[in-house]
Design a protein around this nucleic acid. Sequence first.
DNA 1: TAAAAATTGTGATTTATCTCACAATATAAC
DNA 2: GTTATATTGTGAGATAAATCACAATTTTTA
Lengths: 225, 225
Amino acid sequence: MENKCTFCDYKSAAARKLTLEESASLSINCLTVKFKKGDSIIKQGTYSTNVAYLRSGLVKIHIDGPYHVQVVRIVKPSSYLGLPTTFGDKINQYSVTAIEESEVCFIDISLFRKLLATNPDFSNQILIELCKGELESYKKCVNRTQKQTRGKLADVLLDFADNIYHSDCFPILIKQEDIGNLVDASRETISRVFSEFVKDEILKISGKKVEIVNKQKLKRISSNG
Amino acid sequence: MENKCTFCDYKSAAARKLTLEESASLSINCLTVKFKKGDSIIKQGTYSTNVAYLRSGLVKIHIDGPYHVQVVRIVKPSSYLGLPTTFGDKINQYSVTAIEESEVCFIDISLFRKLLATNPDFSNQILIELCKGELESYKKCVNRTQKQTRGKLADVLLDFADNIYHSDCFPILIKQEDIGNLVDASRETISRVFSEFVKDEILKISGKKVEIVNKQKLKRISSNG
DNA sequence: TAAAAATTGTGATTTATCTCACAATATAAC
DNA sequence: GTTATATTGTGAGATAAATCACAATTTTTA
């Protein structure tokens, strides 16, 4: 019980670099909380004194835009959430909400900083993660703006299949409005494109379950915009 | 001459945290290169063995999109360029091109890694810079998609005035096509909006020089989309 | 300095997508 | 299990901006 982080199966790449003592001190300064679908994990504008780490589940990062909420990205484990806040002004610049039941570890910020300062391997892993995020957001920025809705929805579906659920058959647990806010389209357009994909025999949908039946075609739509 | 980095006036926040010896070793492993307007500093797809640091000038980061080039952002000194490559797969994932005459310091990657590993204050500053970049790209993502071209062009102009040139009168050294690729609009639309802004007495343009004459109005356009 | 190339300006037309409106489901609450 | 609430489906019309097609500049090159 005392060394829960040491023996945690969902360790971050960074946490794997910790020594036994460091990992033990992490266990003491780490609180794991369960969130249900729809629960707010981090709320934009509030003060933050912890580093959050997504141990399991699925979450969305979103920002209040001038007109409506913008879903910036979907994050899967194992990822740190809200690092920019940790190194910034302590006010959360965006919100994080659970899409499915999720477990989040809240780590004391001073311990986290101490680990960064004393363990170069640990901080290097954090740097790597941040850099990956930067690249991803650049790429997303290109896609968002140069593809039309069909291509962007295809991207999202392929991302769900290949990177998140690792299966061509998966549930869609966010509403179409959220998907719209993720790919910059209206709720109605998402609905229409879903219907098109079903009619074109690219998808099969029953309830919340989606099955990709013609992945080739979906990939073609993704890359052709 | 030997300690050029120690006494450099354009030091990064991170480099300010270095000890005298560290800074001396940086001087030895750092090559400063001048680039003219239009010169390519980092080229997408090529192999990178150095960390680049923008000492002076102005550059754009751009990525080849499915249809056309996407300008991701404009970067001013003092910033590290291509950090994601440093910590990633060594292949540059984006290009960097000089917008005006720029000086870039190329730092040996193994020394850079050593500094990160041995100087926690240094690595902390790098972390802070990366996090800032992440937040900025999130915000940009919201703006890009929820504002129309007038609002987005207003954003760019205000950014130039307030953050880059620190004056309401400045030259526009990138072509309208680039501005279009930055705010996701066609070249023609940018041209039209510029004309509108002049007609509405928000801007005065003569040649490449732009003067913001009604900043209030420009700010209103920026926040109202 | 002239010729060539690149950039910008502007009109007419087309288009993907938004918005509005309401019907049809699905999900939650009682 | 029935009502209330939230989500999705779909048509018709409105619209910001893209595209196309040239003319007018400006900048670069020879």
